[in-house]
Design a protein around this nucleic acid. Sequence first.
DNA 1: CAAAACTACGTAGTTAACTACATATATGCA
DNA 2: TGCATATATGTAGTTAACTACGTAGTTTTG
Lengths: 160, 160
Amino acid sequence: MHNVIDQSGLLAISTRLQRLSDQLRKDGQKIYELYGVAFEPKWFPVIYTLYQKPILSVVEIANEIGYTHPSTISLLKELEKQKLIRSKRDKTDERKRLLVLTEKGNMLVEQMKPVWNTMVKSLTTLTDTSNNIMKAIEEVEEEMEKQSFYQRAQLIKRKE
Amino acid sequence: MHNVIDQSGLLAISTRLQRLSDQLRKDGQKIYELYGVAFEPKWFPVIYTLYQKPILSVVEIANEIGYTHPSTISLLKELEKQKLIRSKRDKTDERKRLLVLTEKGNMLVEQMKPVWNTMVKSLTTLTDTSNNIMKAIEEVEEEMEKQSFYQRAQLIKRKE
DNA sequence: CAAAACTACGTAGTTAACTACATATATGCA
DNA sequence: TGCATATATGTAGTTAACTACGTAGTTTTG
């Protein structure tokens, strides 16, 4: 085992992950401003998902973007108020509300493309380091699927 | 440039960082329960910091743990209510409030040590992947210090 | 075919961070 | 030496996620 995390590393990991995430989000907001477009980073997951899969229900979107459905609902409300998306009942299943991008939403996506492109480039240079963070996240997610942080701790405790 | 992030990667990064951080925190909580100790993950940064540097002011703690001082104050209130820390005015500078661990706090740290040890081991196996996440975070933080996500985007835009 | 279980959506309340502002004390300099 | 600036702490209000719970339709099953 060559990579050892000490206790101050333990201190760091969760808060640093969160701060990094915050920082990226804030800078994202400033980049939209730089391009003079009225768009907030938090809108991205829903808009981009609906751009790729044009008709989805509330829970389907929640799963795609990885939020809980109540969080998703409040995002959807905001986007409907902005008239970027609209919804209609599913005729074959009256429980479902189906979301689509509006014309305004689609136009915004087209406007956003160069901005996203710039972000992708910027983020790529930022994360082009010897330990690639995206890959690291994927790898940790895979490891957690095999065995969670908690399960590993359980086993270690049992051996004590 | 070998590591390229596409737009769905862009979608992923901020939310995935945050989810990973959440997941670790939740599992941390369960690990404390496993050991039967009354301790919450969010207390760790303050307690551990005061364990290493026994007397600190509010802002000093905030800087050490990387939170804003209002967030830190509310954490400190909680810890004072738990009687894990206590505070006194600095006699040479009446503006300052100096925090220290109580006897209860110190005893808790001793109790916590084996738990933290298990966590460190567990986390080490979890993150012992080819792209090490702690190193990746450090590297990205370094890159951001050289030039932020926003600054990089500015330069890319200028060249368009 | 009615009751039970499940699914989809929605609301309410909580949490843990933040920013912006307010107050008190300390310091530096004209 | 007293006014301007800086520092330390504190409060209020906001935000964006969450969990828990409720309701209304749908499906399954005894």
